[in-house]
Design a protein around this nucleic acid. Structure first.
Length: 450
RNA sequence: GGCCCCAUCGUCUAGUCUGGUCUAGGACAACAGAUUUUCGAUCUGUGAACUGGGGUUCAAAUCCCCAUGGGGUCACCA
């Protein structure tokens, strides 16, 4: 590197305001900062911008920290809290008043604030992703530095802290572009050295409008609770506005760090595509070892109110093995396998109509019942041999018995392999459900009143 | 509305800086086929884009201008 690499060490920050959970856009901003820091062996710090006394909450701060940790975005310094640095802002604001570039101003409501005096000059942002952006400062109104409650405004606190914390690169959403000339003016007035700016494109909802509640899940917490794998979310987010430059879609954290560059961040806003996230998470699930999935899966079953106290890890591990190419997140796994855990299963009406309420199904299931109940070893091999023999004997296609059995014992038309499912369900439960189905759900529906 | 940003398949994007190798590549999704006890997974294949108009140039997705469209921002919110 160069001779002054000590002083040029990269320092970046993520500076959320604790007025709500960490949303997808914020997470992506944090990720880009983090990747940039790690790529450059720099420092990534966290700063909580809690200067809005009304809207800031401790819960939100905690939710943000939790989300960062869950995503694996560890910080090297902080979290710093702006609410704990009030004297610093006051000192700088008064300094500016003394210098004549700021003034006390009382509004119609009688509140007195310190306001910054904008000059009539031209301000240029040399943005790392956008290039030069020019503003006419004359068009920008004087803005508040220090509010009547003694708290700094966003623009002021941001500049004081970024300078004080020796931030070298400000990487943030491009909705901040219009704030930047104000901040540059402040840097100049305060005599601070300007950081580099990189304004990254925003993430929009699936309909192209700004991400909001009505787009469904928008917080990191929601994805965590639905059982998405954090690595998958990180991978997906990394590819929103950045690409490694080749056709690679699945990247490990190490690869992302190695390849990340602001030069490859694009300018166009991206729409959040849940379907692709699902696909990506499915890829990660497939590549995650069974025992890890089992450990996480256990937590999700418990959280979903499913009683698994009498269930062994071996059994659970077998279940995960059967399903690990079939689910994309743990919520899905729980939904797909609930029938294993409950006493009375729910029957999908469409599946019932299609596979159970048919001529002859009752008879087929009875034959299956007796064939299977006399089996010595109720395992997948034994079941397969038995049932295949049966279809051969009856001269019917295998699906003719597989689907009725599936619906009878799972309540649905889709599940893992039928032999594996029967084996895992066990002899007792399988037979009980077959019997129950034959008694109560087969045959052509009787006319009402008969 | 003022100011600012942006513009490649439905979506994420490669290609744009350093015009030609682009009859525009990949991925997700869609569709079709194969496979399968179902769904899924998998494999194979298909359709799908340079917003429009002017320039510049031998040559433009790539450079310039205008139009249009989308987004952002105009608080004692951040």
């Amino acid at each position: 590197m160069n001779e002054n690499n000590l002083s040029s060490a990269v320092r970046v920050r993520f500076a959320p305001s604790p007025t709500g959970y960490l949303h997808i856009g914020g997470a992506r901003t944090a990720l880009f900062n983090w990747l940039f820091a790690r790529h450059n062996n720099g420092v990534f710090l966290l700063r909580i911008e809690d200067t809005d006394q009304q809207r800031s909450t401790k819960e939100a701060t905690q939710a943000i920290l939790d989300s960062m940790k869950w995503l694996g975005l560890d910080w090297d310094e902080g979290p710093y809290f702006q609410s704990q640095r009030l004297p610093k802002y006051k000192q700088y604001a008064e300094h500016l008043v003394e210098g004549g570039t700021a003034y006390y101003d009382t509004d119609a409501e009688g509140r007195t604030a310190i306001r910054f005096k904008m000059k009539n000059n031209v301000i240029v942002i040399n943005d790392l992703v956008h290039g030069a952006i020019t503003f006419d400062a004359a068009a920008i109104e004087d803005f508040v530095l220090l509010k009547a409650d003694g708290f700094p405004s966003y623009n002021f606190a941001c500049v004081v802290d970024d300078a004080d914390m020796k931030i070298t690169h400000v990487i943030r959403g491009d909705d901040h572009i219009s704030n930047t000339p104000k901040q540059i003016a402040l840097y100049n007035a305060l005599g601070f050295e300007l950081p580099e700016y990189a304004h990254i494109p925003m993430i929009l909802g699936e309909d192209g409008s700004r991400l909001s509640k009505r787009h469904g899940a928008t917080s990191v917490t929601e994805y965590r609770d639905k059982g998405y794998l954090p690595q998958a979310l990180v991978n997906f987010l990394a590819l929103l506005g950045w690409s490694p430059g080749n056709d690679q879609e699945i990247l490990s954290i190490g690869e992302m760090i190695e390849k990340f560059s602001l030069k490859r961040v694009n300018k166009t806003s991206a729409q959040f595509d849940n379907t692709k996230l699902d696909w990506m998470c499915g890829q990660y699930v497939k590549n995650t070892p069974i025992d890890q999935l089992t450990a996480v899966g256990k937590l999700f079953f418990e959280k979903s109110g499913i009683d698994i106290t009498n269930i062994s890890m071996e059994w659970l591990s077998t279940l995960i093995e059967l399903y690990h190419e079939r689910f994309k997140n743990f919520q899905e796994l729980v939904d797909q396998t609930r029938f294993f855990f409950v006493n009375s299963i729910e029957y999908d009406p469409v599946a019932t109509e299609k596979f159970l309420k048919k001529e002859g199904v009752s008879e087929i299931l009875k034959v299956v019942y007796s064939a299977v109940s006399s089996l010595n070893s109720f395992d997948r091999e034994g079941l397969e041999g038995c049932l295949r023999d049966l279809t051969a004997k009856l001269g019917i296609g295998f699906s003719k018995i597989a689907q009725p059995i599936r619906v009878a014992i799972t309540g649905r038309s889709a599940s893992a392999g039928i032999f594996e499912t029967m084996e895992l369900l066990g002899r007792e439960t399988t037979l009980k459900r077959l019997e129950n189905t034959i008694k109560n759900r087969c045959g052509i529906t009787n006319a009402v009143g008969l």
